[in-house]
Amino acid sequence: EVTIKANLIFANGSTQTAEFKGTFEKATSEAYAYADTSKKDNGEYTVDVADKGYTLNIKFAG
């Protein structure tokens, strides 16, 4: 089991951190699914992958 950390960075400057656990593939998939659901309210996003994929910096356009 691994933990994927997602740092969500919103257009207004606020941030949120979420953690997803499971296999690398499952946790990563859940992090992207979470970003997709947040996209409806926060606009399109880009992802900067860090820490060999264990940290995702997800920046929303607003």
Rank of each mutant, 00 (worst) to 15 (best):
E1Y: 13
E1R: 09
E1G: 09
E1N: 11
E1K: 10
E1M: 13
E1T: 11
E1V: 14
V2A: 06
V2T: 06
T3K: 08
T3C: 12
T3R: 08
T3Y: 06
I4F: 01
I4P: 00
I4S: 01
I4K: 00
K5E: 05
K5G: 03
K5C: 11
A6I: 15
A6Q: 02
A6G: 03
A6N: 00
A6D: 00
A6H: 00
A6Y: 00
N7R: 11
N7M: 10
N7F: 11
N7D: 02
N7H: 12
L8R: 00
L8K: 03
I9M: 11
I9F: 14
I9C: 10
I9L: 11
F10W: 07
F10C: 06
F10P: 00
F10L: 08
A11V: 09
N12T: 07
N12F: 05
G13E: 04
G13H: 05
G13D: 04
S14R: 13
S14F: 13
T15L: 10
T15F: 12
T15E: 07
T15R: 12
T15S: 11
T15W: 10
T15V: 14
Q16A: 12
Q16E: 14
Q16C: 14
T17G: 06
T17R: 09
T17C: 12
T17M: 10
T17D: 05
T17Y: 12
T17F: 11
A18Y: 14
A18N: 08
A18E: 10
A18M: 15
E19W: 15
E19K: 08
E19V: 12
E19I: 14
F20C: 04
F20N: 00
K21F: 13
K21E: 06
K21S: 11
K21G: 05
K21L: 08
G22Y: 01
G22P: 00
G22L: 02
T23L: 08
T23C: 07
F24Y: 13
F24L: 10
F24R: 06
E25H: 08
E25K: 08
E25P: 06
E25L: 09
E25M: 08
K26V: 11
K26A: 13
K26W: 12
K26G: 11
K26Y: 11
K26Q: 13
K26S: 14
A27I: 03
A27R: 00
A27T: 03
A27K: 00
A27Q: 01
A27P: 00
T28S: 08
T28W: 10
T28H: 06
S29Q: 15
S29C: 15
S29V: 10
E30R: 08
E30C: 12
E30P: 02
E30W: 06
A31C: 08
A31I: 06
A31M: 03
A31H: 01
Y32G: 02
Y32L: 14
Y32A: 03
Y32R: 06
Y32C: 07
Y32M: 12
A33F: 09
A33L: 11
A33N: 10
Y34K: 04
Y34I: 04
Y34E: 03
A35C: 09
A35W: 01
D36K: 05
D36I: 05
D36N: 11
D36S: 06
D36L: 06
T37V: 14
T37G: 13
S38H: 15
K39E: 05
K39N: 06
K39G: 08
K39D: 04
D41L: 14
D41H: 13
N42C: 13
N42M: 10
N42G: 08
N42H: 15
N42A: 11
N42Q: 11
N42K: 08
G43N: 04
G43E: 07
G43C: 06
G43R: 03
G43V: 04
E44H: 10
E44M: 10
E44L: 08
E44D: 13
Y45C: 03
Y45L: 02
Y45H: 02
Y45F: 07
Y45M: 04
T46R: 08
T46C: 12
T46I: 11
T46P: 00
T46D: 07
V47Y: 04
V47K: 01
D48W: 10
V49L: 09
V49K: 08
V49Y: 09
V49W: 10
A50G: 09
A50H: 10
A50S: 12
D51N: 08
D51Y: 03
D51H: 04
D51E: 07
D51F: 03
D51C: 06
D51T: 01
D51I: 02
D51G: 04
K52F: 15
G53I: 02
G53L: 02
G53S: 03
G53P: 03
G53K: 02
Y54F: 14
Y54H: 10
Y54D: 03
Y54Q: 06
Y54E: 05
T55P: 01
T55I: 10
T55H: 04
T55C: 06
L56T: 01
L56I: 11
L56C: 02
L56F: 04
L56G: 01
N57S: 05
N57T: 11
N57L: 08
N57F: 09
I58W: 00
I58F: 15
K59I: 15
K59F: 15
K59W: 13
K59Y: 15
F60C: 03
F60W: 05
F60H: 02
A61K: 13
A61H: 14
A61M: 14
A61R: 11
G62E: 10
